[in-house]
Nucleic acid binder design. Sequence first.
DNA 1: ACAACTGTAACTATATTGGTTACAGACGAT
DNA 2: ATCGTCTGTAACCAATATAGTTACAGTTGT
Lengths: 160, 160
Amino acid sequence: MSTSSRFAVAVHVLTLMAWADDEPLKSEHVAESVNTNAVVIRRMLCELAESKLVVSQTGAMGGSRLARDAEQITLLDIYQAVESRGVFSLHRHPPNRHCPVGVNIGTVLNQVLDEVDTAVESVLANITIKDVVSRLQPCVSSPVAKRKPARKEQMVAAGN
Amino acid sequence: MSTSSRFAVAVHVLTLMAWADDEPLKSEHVAESVNTNAVVIRRMLCELAESKLVVSQTGAMGGSRLARDAEQITLLDIYQAVESRGVFSLHRHPPNRHCPVGVNIGTVLNQVLDEVDTAVESVLANITIKDVVSRLQPCVSSPVAKRKPARKEQMVAAGN
DNA sequence: ACAACTGTAACTATATTGGTTACAGACGAT
DNA sequence: ATCGTCTGTAACCAATATAGTTACAGTTGT
């Protein structure tokens, strides 16, 4: 479904800043860790700045850092800053309103999608960037991700 | 994030079949209700058939119907049949493994994404197609969807 | 045999994301 | 003051996923 890694990248970026502990990071440096182009990072930093999660400084010796403590930034804050829509979408074109199912399915689907969004949000609201940093340290020796088999396996650090 | 309406359409399709109560539906007829092309529907019906949610019959007087009772089909079944990946994706290219954050962020992110997937799945597992059909009837007079303001508003039955 | 269906291939169209180059403007250091 | 180092942003192109369309082979009831 989601073809976008925006959330993953945004969490990565803010984690780097928490790790750097208030020292401003250059977009070029962040891009190296994320393994992408610095402009992609700067675009994302602008969105994060609009949501008051980071502050950036232009000019020489500039860079970006967290706008507040790492334990005051939840993954929900990040999610809302960089992912504009909910988890699912409705029909591209509205269904046939002359069909008894078509005319009302949208209302029911919206109720369901709301339940889903709420569930996702409550998971994300309970994890802070500080939590992510803490979870980072214990796994120095297990560089490969493990996830439920149901999900198409996603490797990290694979060939680089 | 999700640019896909596959889940919404699949729920719509199976709801139609539950509504039709075992009478086989033609793809052309389903497409009319969904407001799309019959081939799009047939493609999706093939996926749903592979997951044993519907059965189709070729030839004259053919069509598709539910493979089992509407209360035995959950939205999780549908989700797993038509949406291949989890809610979020990891980085497109693996992060820099020479960075202390980059080398381990994938592991931590996968843990988080698993939590999210699990939350979504447990919501969907508790709603059946029969539930959707029941929720359909009471809303004959409120054709416009209402969702949480956080989500970009999605209208149904808008201009058709 | 014929008409009415599904299954499927082969396209095209559309949208979103990511990557790249280029450059204006901010700012610290000298 | 000006120079080098940054961010912010516009304007592209590339890659990917989904949706829509036409066409047709194969299946089946009548």
